[in-house]
Amino acid sequence: MAWLRSKLLGIVAVLVLVYLFVPIAVVAVLSFNNPEGKFNVSWNEFSLSAWGNLCGVAGVCQSFILSIEIALIATLIATVFGTMIALALVRYRFRGRGAANSLIFLPMATPEVVLGASLLALYLNLRLPLGFWTILIAHIMFTISFIVVAVKARLQGMDPRLEEAAQDLYASPWQTFRFVTFPLVLPGILGAALLGFALSFDDFIISNFASGTTVTFPIFIWGAAQRGIPVQVYALATLVFALALVGTVLGQIVSSRRRRKLAASS
């Protein structure tokens, strides 16, 4: 009983993590399914056919690649812009700082349907042809705020004396950024970019407004849902998830190894 009480919190924590992963496990399991009808919702029999032929359904791989392209470009641009904003907000005092802060917060406080609807209203009024570019513009817009918040947190956690020390040691403002601020904030920027990529790659609601007839991976899934989502979609989603998970976990292990090895040598 005492053991249970002392471990209760840990057990609850692990259960919550399990809860987070249950639907993902379902997706992974269903990627090995050979569905009975067109709807891949319940287990029938084991099959590797989807994994053996990932692009086997018309349009699925095109949409997948398009989503990756958009996510990469949107993340790159949003990360650069977002990091610049975070630097300005944390390291400088200027008029309009409060307004800039609100402008960053507002897109996060706006439901995605409203973001999508308003962008579509603009696109329609300007008679912009919907497609790749209108999706990209939208993704950069809603990713920037998340990047700013993540990088800001990292910058605020940084000792301002390190930058003063760099200045004191003959580093010009640019060199201070290049040799001290940037390397120290880089892990935060990479984390933010990873999150930005995930948000962009997985976005459906806003993309659905901004896409016209262009089909991203989530739009493909939505469209396919009516007539049954192909098993290939489950396999591709499982693949992305597995790659991301293995990548980040390996990264964690390597960095903690390195830390432990350094600690042991001292």
Binding site: E164, A165, A166, D168, L169, Q175, V180, L184
Partner: peptide
């Protein structure tokens, strides 16, 4: 003169060594 142009250097409180 800017800090980075002065013939003056500082030992900071709690050192501010570059951790990276």
């Amino acid at each position: 003169l800017k800090a980075y142009k002065r013939p003056v250097n500082t030992v900071f409180q709690s050192y501010a060594l570059f951790p990276h």
